[in-house]
Simulated assay, not measured.
Amino acid sequence: MVVVGAGMAGVQTAVALREHGFTGSVTLVGAEPHQPYDRPPLSKAVLLGTAEHSAFDVDFDGLGIGLELGREVLGLRPGDHELDTAAGPVPYDVLVLATGAEPIRLPGTDGVPGVHLLRTLDDAERLRPVLARQHDIVVVGAGWIGAEFATAAREAGCAVTVVEAADRPLAGTLPAEVAAPMAAWYADSGAVLRTHARVEHVEPGAVVLDDGTRIPAGAVVVGVGARPATGWLAGSGVELGARGEVVADAHLRTSASDVYAVGDCASFPSARYGERLLVHHWDNALQGPRVVAANIVGSATGQPDAVYDPVPYFWSEQFGRFVQYAGHHARADRTVWRGAPSGPAWTVCWLREGRLVALLAVGRPRDLAQGRRLIGAGTAMDPELLADPARPLKAATVG
């Protein structure tokens, strides 16, 4: 067994294989030289210097998992069952692709001093002294990572300006009526949010917008999204989707024999939502490996294939608020609010044909916990009862 990628999805796949009784060799290949680590703390504790690292608490030696770290994979030859690396080929019997996603770079910023990304431990280590010196910081992009970094920068005492090309935060993720109220969170924290602000170019010490506005910047942090880290698969014959992701089936198998894919780099068909999902969140990288491991071990013992069709889930801590989301709202036909978005705690529920398909909870973890189960069960809801924030979510079911 060879697993490519030493992030959450890769590590959990290796561990799950042992938990499912796999006794053969397991090798985890990672491009970074560091001991495998978790990413969510990078934008919080590691960035602010309250934690030195976020290494996984996994006894790799005790589990018999071999680590090949600092070894970048350059290509895949499925016909030969080999990976290509600068240090030579790596043969496999079964391969799991878990290479995750990589941040999208702002065009024209390569080599410009003071421009940063936040994806890896090294990125966080480079940004830590920037925050400690309390630079004026410009964040490009008001998505999840932009908001989380802006939160940390304000906690560190930095002056923060966030520029967003769209008309609101999280424009690519949430509907306007849900995302627009979040704009006030920036001002509440002392950060400046500039929407309809498209970056023309970045120069040392400043960000220049397309209307000529020049914003002073001791440092610039780019958070405009991420794409599957699959460029190295070009020419391999492994099917890639329109978003550059590995196309996996309902069992997380790829188009290549003996090759699976899991986590941020792969999409999967969801019978629950009637479309193919590409989920770039921590929980997906935690849940998918269990299905991969079960199917790898099960294929050798004649067990039926496990199907991967989760209720997607993620969370974000920003501007003193705990934001949680479960489900997938793209095809919802009704939106129900529980509480006013001007308040400290509220929830938005999305229904399709009367059934709960997604919800966003701000400071209401009980709504999220109950709603996630109701989504998984495909439960029908009474919209009038659902709209009462004093009523438990589970008490608004029909029947």
Rank of each mutant, 00 (worst) to 15 (best):
A358L: 07
A395V: 12
P344N: 10
F322S: 15
G172D: 01
D123E: 11
E72S: 14
V202W: 02
L28W: 03
V222M: 03
Y273V: 05
Y92D: 00
P365I: 12
A6W: 02
G172W: 08
M182I: 07
G376N: 07
G146H: 11
P91R: 15
C349R: 08
D382Q: 01
P344H: 11
L131N: 07
D38G: 11
T301V: 14
V160H: 04
D93V: 14
A206S: 13
H116D: 09
R331L: 15
G298P: 04
L209A: 03
P78S: 00
Y325T: 00
W185Q: 06
R243D: 14
L97H: 08
D388Y: 04
T379C: 02
R391C: 01
G49Q: 08
D258N: 15
T50R: 10
H328K: 05
Y273F: 14
P40S: 13
D211P: 03
V222N: 05
L48D: 06
G64I: 01
V247E: 07
V15P: 06
G225I: 01
E384P: 02
A87P: 04
P310D: 01
P169K: 04
Y273I: 06
G49H: 03
H251E: 12
R321W: 05
V2Y: 05
S270V: 12
P204N: 12
Q318E: 03
I145Y: 09
L28V: 10
P181N: 00
A294V: 04
K394C: 10
M182K: 01
V138F: 10
A55W: 15
